[in-house]
Design a protein around this nucleic acid. Structure first.
Lengths: 385, 385
DNA sequence: GAGCTTTGTTCGGACATCGGCGGAAGTCGG
DNA sequence: CCGACTTCCGCCGATGTCCGAACAAAGCTC
């Protein structure tokens, strides 16, 4: 059931999105009477979800009292679980970062160890921000593998031994927990922070692996089994010799992933092991590395060219480890996409580097948590007993 | 603004979908009081949208009065405009076919001529079905090219000379007109008729060209510029020699489209010009034709394998002219998709031939029209003065 | 400071919804 | 065949929600 127009949740959504900052705005936008709006806003204030700030500027009459989210007393967490690191961000209801931390941590140590670590970091960050544990309303988590979003259970993740089907939410009994693929939360964070008006966006992460988060109609597309966006094993032409860990050959990841580029560099006599090594070499001005990164961009671009025709996004954001040298990667991507995609699809297409940087995933996961908590359905439940 | 739960439109949606056939069902499903439901249903009956039928079976008490859409007095049209044909289907509100016709017609004759023809056929079909012209509530149309759905204007369609930016809806002043790409309406029709529970579905049309309709979250995905699903110009590996009319080479359409298969057959000494010729040859048992169709299936499958990883659909439906010999085409497609896509994405994936047949597009276009008319927003407008 | 404008609150009335009651219309068991 | 039971449906008073007019508040303009 969809919420009624102008319901408390709807009102809060407008305030949260910044579409409305006064009661008058709300009345205009919802079409409800001013008296009704006042009543709704009062309820939201009473529940601690909204607060009044100083009076705004008069436009010739009585100045309005500005409304905004009441960000005290609540906290939300975003967790970015990588293969070898764990980043936790504590945010308020408006999405502002309150505190954060990052530690090296092997996801392969298994769920109990890793989630206990997360739990400890949450306590520390909450203390830092001066908020009690019960203030934590919801937690979002991005993990490096496929997840069944509805239940928060990893689904045969290749690089998360011991996590298969583990019910992550049950580890945090006192607050709502939303678990998603790391690339999905990065896509969400980028779209919400940098491209709020864009309805169709792809976020491509080029690191050791290659993945893609899909925002369609402003919402994450996860597909039937939650495995949408797994573009690392799409075939690219002319590289039949490259075998991939998935058992096939000529997979995008096997020829353009960070590890693949490093291996090819090593073959050329420039020792490199990981994507980070490649980035360092490019930054040091190594021309072989630069050439190979650009070539990797072309290969990613070949796959993206097809996806642009298929999905017709407005924006493609390129992130991940290799994007630290994004000029060269992007150059290769753009070159191929604009050559191989149809004009109608590329005419208004932007291909840009990620703006959110290293904590993109943690912030995106936090946004997942906040949007869950502020969803009209949830707010209506909070307001009506 | 989303409609309120249990609004007249919501009630009608449940009846239309077959989820509820009695007042009691509606009360259970909406959570509203039985008295409220009765009132809503009365309003819908008064407006001629719903009718009572005979009593249903008792389950131990008073038998319920069954409700269904009141299909008399309304009519909806679906128009399938092809490059060389025009098919018009007249349907009632439940999606049942009332009358239909097909004529050879060159879309290249331009909008005035073609739309005048459609108009004439509409009158004839309405007369056949015994309904007056004003009974026509909405019209859906599928055209062979990209369309800006919101305005119903073709967007630089390659095979529709004279139609660029032509405002098709203005030609039919008295009823709502929805114009979409032909593959999109085929996808919609197939999903609604044959796979109502499936949320993510791809419809692949293999004919002279190759296109794809995308259903995501149960709704058509049209993309940013309405060009989503144009998979005919995605690159396939190992066919650099094949030039395409789009200016690139190795496009899927240039190696696996009906015209391409026909050309390759001709080169092998078996004369063929169009996809229809190829179908005839296969049906006649020509082994060369059979082999090439299967090979075309493999090529389509290579592209679909990537799209399966990216989009993660539950069902892929294969339609279009070449699918009349779908055993061979499907065999090639399945072979490649199941080899090249990730297990998580293929595990619950079905690849099936289209069930709706030659009038798939016309029926899908009609469904577009009906769903527009029965959308909760529109129904609420109809019921409340 | 009077009048104007805009914002926000108060309050009575209109309207929709709820839920109990009773009648209608069937089944079931004796 | 008939009464008990079940389910469906309409009626109606009670309840609560929402609206809109009137009013108060707080600024601007002259």
């Amino acid at each position: 059931m969809t919420p009624a127009p102008g319901s408390p949740g709807d009102v809060l959504t407008l305030i949260s999105a910044g579409s409305a900052t006064t009661r008058s705005d709300l009345a205009r936008l919802t079409g409800l009477a001013r008296s009704t709006i006042s009543q709704r806003v009062d309820a939201l204030i009473e529940r601690g979800l909204v607060e009044e700030t100083e009076s705004g500027e008069s436009t010739g009459g009585r100045p309005p009292r500005r409304l905004r989210l009441h960000t005290d007393g609540h906290a939300f967490a975003g967790v970015d679980l990588g293969a070898t690191h764990c980043r936790v961000a504590l945010m308020d209801m408006s999405g502002r970062l309150l505190a954060e931390c990052e530690d090296p941590l092997l996801v392969s140590e298994g769920p109990e160890t890793v989630l206990a670590h997360v739990d400890g970091r949450l306590d520390r960050l909450l203390a830092e921000a001066g908020r009690p544990r019960p203030a934590l309303r919801a937690l979002g988590m991005g993990v490096p593998g496929p997840v069944e979003f509805a239940t928060g259970r990893p689904n045969n993740p290749p690089i998360m031994p011991g996590w298969n089907d583990y019910p992550i939410p049950e580890h945090f009994a006192d607050c709502a927990v939303l678990v998603d693929n790391d690339v999905n939360v990065m896509a969400l964070g980028e779209q919400r922070n940098a491209y709020p008006g864009i309805r169709h966006l792809l976020f491509v992460k080029v690191g050791t692996g290659i993945g893609c988060g899909i925002v369609a109609e402003g919402r994450l597309h996860r597909g039937a089994r939650g495995s949408a966006g797994d573009i690392g094993h799409i075939r690219v032409s002319g590289h039949e010799e490259a075998g991939c860990r998935c058992g096939n050959s000529a997979c995008l990841e096997a020829v353009a992933g960070g590890a693949a580029v490093a291996r090819r560099l090593t073959e050329l006599g420039v020792p490199a092991e990981t994507g980070a090594d490649v980035v360092a070499l490019v930054q040091a001005g190594d021309t072989q590395a630069l050439r190979l990164v650009r070539e990797a961009g072309r290969l990613v671009g070949e796959v993206l060219a097809g996806l642009v025709n298929f999905f017709n996004p407005e924006v493609i954001v390129v992130g991940g480890a290799l994007s630290r040298v994004h000029e060269h990667l992007l150059a290769g991507i753009k070159e191929t996409v604009y050559r191989r995609s149809l004009p109608l699809a590329t005419h208004h297409l932007s291909i840009v580097p990620s703006r959110t940087g290293v904590n993109a995933a943690a912030l995106g996961a936090g946004i997942l948590a906040i949007e869950h908590y502020l969803s009209p359905d949830n707010v209506n439940r909070l307001v009506n007993p």
